[in-house]
């Protein structure tokens, strides 16, 4: 009796520990990383200035990763976000140089994002292409469009000062890019967590067939997810172009893999195996904090890449192993 009891208690303990590891392991690792960086560079890493730098550095990635989360909630991917961010950045810069005015220029660039997202969505939801293939192809096409549009050069001359509002100006002590990021986070969180639309998107990700049989318009919903992702990529491209005050035809490309990595990291946090906005945001922060901290510690640039890869693997492995037990 007694033996039985103690066995079941240890088993229960182990189960509890597993569950904790699965749900909070990555977050604990993130906190540990912050503690280590603060101990190694006391007064520098946690200085208000550096914290502001970090939030500013992650803002653009956070925008893309947040809207990427929506696509991944329905079980798809969008590989075109980086190229699309470059394209919308090039378009907004050119529009402003042409003198269409700040808000019309921004509107046109966002429209480019929405139309591109619509196109991706049509290919995937209505023409039945896999998201991987469809967005791989459109990624190539969007990259080509940016290069064609700019003839491979950088657009910078004649962008009006007013355009600095998105990526370089501050509201009080807070960078505007961070405010834009927060707005995207809050709106997307609200849509995914608090609305029927969000429930439906999660239902499709859980089981598209069952959702269809339950009467959901699966196609329209998947299409919507891609439009949201396209809009997010375009917004990120606008903020990036404002931050660099110049449009480079491939500037947005690193955003694609990093945003997917952030969503995967987020899937290992708080909830089991589901993409969600809060997790994605912590994933983005984790990537940003790691890059900033390793830079401040002056770790070799090549090793930084290795460490980033290893941390992502560890996070995913840990939550995977804990789940298998």
């Amino acid at each position: 009796m007694q033996a039985d009891n103690s066995v079941s208690t240890t088993a229960g303990l182990r189960q509890g520990a597993n569950r904790w590891l699965r749900v909070y392991g990555t977050f604990a690792g993130f906190v540990a990383m912050i503690v280590i960086f603060s101990l190694l560079r006391p007064g520098v890493f946690l200085s208000p200035n550096n914290l502001r730098n970090i939030t500013e550095q992650v803002a653009i990635l956070a925008i893309v990763a947040t809207t990427m989360t929506v696509v991944m909630v329905v079980g798809d991917f969008d590989l075109s976000v980086g190229a699309l961010a470059s394209l919308s950045g090039v378009v907004v810069a050119d529009m402003l140089i042409q003198g269409v005015g700040l808000w019309p220029g921004v509107g046109i660039a966002l429209l480019v994002g929405a139309v591109a997202g619509l196109f991706n969505g049509l290919l995937v939801a209505y023409f039945g292409l896999s998201a991987f293939v469809a967005t791989l192809a459109t990624m190539t096409a969007f990259r080509g469009l940016s290069l064609f549009y700019t003839n491979g050069s950088t657009l910078f001359s004649g962008i009006p000062e007013s355009f600095k509002i998105f990526g370089q100006s501050f509201t009080g002590p807070i960078p505007n890019s961070v405010l834009i990021m927060l707005a995207v986070l809050i709106v997307t969180w609200f849509v995914l967590e608090q609305t029927t639309l969000g429930r439906r998107l999660y239902a499709i990700g859980g089981n598209a067939q069952a959702s269809y049989l339950a009467g959901l318009n699966v196609r329209a919903l998947r299409l919507t997810a891609f439009v949201i992702s396209g809009l997010g990529a375009a917004l990120a491209g606008i903020v990036l172009t404002s931050r660099l005050f110049s449009a480079h035809p491939t500037a947005g490309e690193p955003l694609m893999l990093n945003s997917i990595a952030a969503v995967f990291l987020g899937m290992t946090m708080f909830r089991e195996g589901e993409p969600h906005v809060l997790g994605t945001f912590v994933g983005v922060l984790l990537l940003g904090v790691m890059s900033n901290g390793l830079n401040i510690l002056q770790v070799n640039s090549y090793l930084q890449l290795v460490l980033t890869g290893v941390i992502i693997l560890l996070a995913v492995l840990l939550s995977g192993l804990a789940r298998r037990e």
Binding site: R41, I60, R243, S246, A251, G252, P254, N295, Q298, S301
Partner: peptide, 24 residues
């Protein structure tokens, strides 16, 4: 320091790296 700059996206990468080095 010799810092390896990633491409594509070298402008933003260098901007962030410089920001961090200025902090260091």
């Amino acid at each position: 320091e010799k810092k390896h700059i990633e491409v594509p996206g070298p402008v933003d990468f260098a901007r962030n790296a410089t920001q961090d080095l200025l902090t260091a």
